[in-house]
């Protein structure tokens, strides 16, 4: 039997260890503890990808700000106002370029209402932190929700053991 389509999607010849968990996908409730859960999940996953420790700190800050924004602003500060199954979806995957350099693409999506940040406000600062800690960031919003996509700065592939 040929490998499943899930296997086929992976890059031929890429390092098998880094590809063992090519994508992280989870959903969190509209709750004030969700930023801490997102930080913990992302940090342990990036460690398993042997990510740069300094960049892990940056990306953990990014996911914290994105999830906090979804809960505090997208869903309007109140968990009660978020109708089930309101939630925040987080997807993170590793992008490998032909030279072997790696970036992570982090996507945080909610079904809340986008509000432009007001100055001087907390959220403007949060978006600034997210920009400072990533290579680029895009925010797409429509009536169905808001999607924030962040791509990290590239890091070199890990040296082979031994």
């Amino acid at each position: 039997m040929p490998p499943s389509s899930d296997q086929d999607r992976r890059q031929a010849g890429a390092r098998s260890e880094a590809d063992a968990e090519p994508e992280l996908r989870f959903t969190l409730p509209v709750d004030w503890v969700s930023p801490s859960l997102a930080r913990e999940r992302l940090r342990s996953w990036l460690r398993r990808q042997r990510w740069s420790p300094a960049q892990i700190d940056d990306l953990v800050l990014v996911v914290n700000e994105a999830v906090t924004n979804s809960i505090e602003h997208g869903y309007g500060l109140s968990a009660e106002r978020a109708r089930p199954p309101s939630a925040v979806q987080i997807t993170c995957r590793v992008l490998t370029d032909p030279s072997g350099d790696r970036q992570v693409e982090l996507v945080v999506r909610d079904q809340g209402r986008w509000r432009p940040p007001t100055e001087p406000g907390n959220r403007g600062k949060g978006l600034g932190l997210m920009r400072a800690c990533s290579e680029h960031m895009t925010i797409d919003h429509d009536e169905t929700g808001t999607t924030v996509t962040i791509v990290s700065r590239p890091i070199p592939p890990p040296l082979a053991p031994g």
Partner: peptide, 25 residues
Amino acid sequence: VKPASDERTPDGSARFAVPSREQLL
């Protein structure tokens, strides 16, 4: 003052290991 929403989840789910404020800080 934020609501004490760590005491509940909106979807009633118990799937999440929810840390208390005291554990976090």
